[in-house]
């Protein structure tokens, strides 16, 4: 299973939105608010092919970070965290891979997706999706979200030397 500290796992369990930052073509960071999903080991995000620039960026440079910052989007939990890691885009079959991999996790956080899925005919391209699988490598944690205090840093086992 995963190595992320428990408070960060708790944030991942409840967060409706996290800020995924990828590296753009020109080397600048680009941030995308996305719904983060967590299976206890990897972090999953997903993107429609409609909004797939981020996927192109990740395929060019797999280094990403995910920030969890908004207490409103985290059931009032005021803690904050940033997780750095390497991302992999799963896109063999954008029509159905994501359903197999993350639909159950997605439904738990956003039950309205069931109704959207019933209307798939109205939004066919929205449901052509790729999954972004993040392997966490380093985590920064701010208790109570107080970033005027230095974060607690945790590194994935085997990553310490890096």
């Amino acid at each position: 299973m995963g190595w992320l500290p428990e408070p960060i796992e708790q944030l991942l369990e409840v967060a409706l939105v996290g800020e995924l930052t990828v590296i753009g073509r020109d080397g600048r960071p680009i941030t995308h608010p996305l719904i983060p999903l967590y299976d206890g080991d990897k972090i999953y995000l997903h993107s429609s092919t409609l909004f797939s620039k981020k996927l192109e960026h990740i395929k060019r440079d797999a280094r990403v970070s995910l920030a969890l910052t908004d207490p409103v989007a985290m059931k009032g939990n005021t803690d904050r965290a940033t997780i750095q890691g390497t991302a992999r885009v799963i896109e063999d079959d954008p029509h159905s891979d994501w359903e197999r991999l993350i639909l159950d996790l997605w439904r738990q956080k956003e039950p309205a997706i069931n109704d959207f899925l019933k209307a798939r005919v109205a939004l066919p391209l929205f449901f052509e999706r790729a999954v972004i699988e993040i392997t966490p490598e380093r985590a920064l944690y701010w208790a109570d979200g107080k970033t005027d205090r230095a974060p607690v840093e945790t590194v994935a086992p085997g990553q310490e030397a890096a």
Binding site: I23, T31, T82
Partner: peptide, 19 residues
């Protein structure tokens, strides 16, 4: 109410912090 500041750190990874 808050912003997220991001940059690419010296290790080449994006990093973010709320402030």
């Amino acid at each position: 109410p808050h912003v997220i500041v991001s940059w690419v750190d010296d290790a080449g990874y994006p990093t973010s912090v709320a402030t």
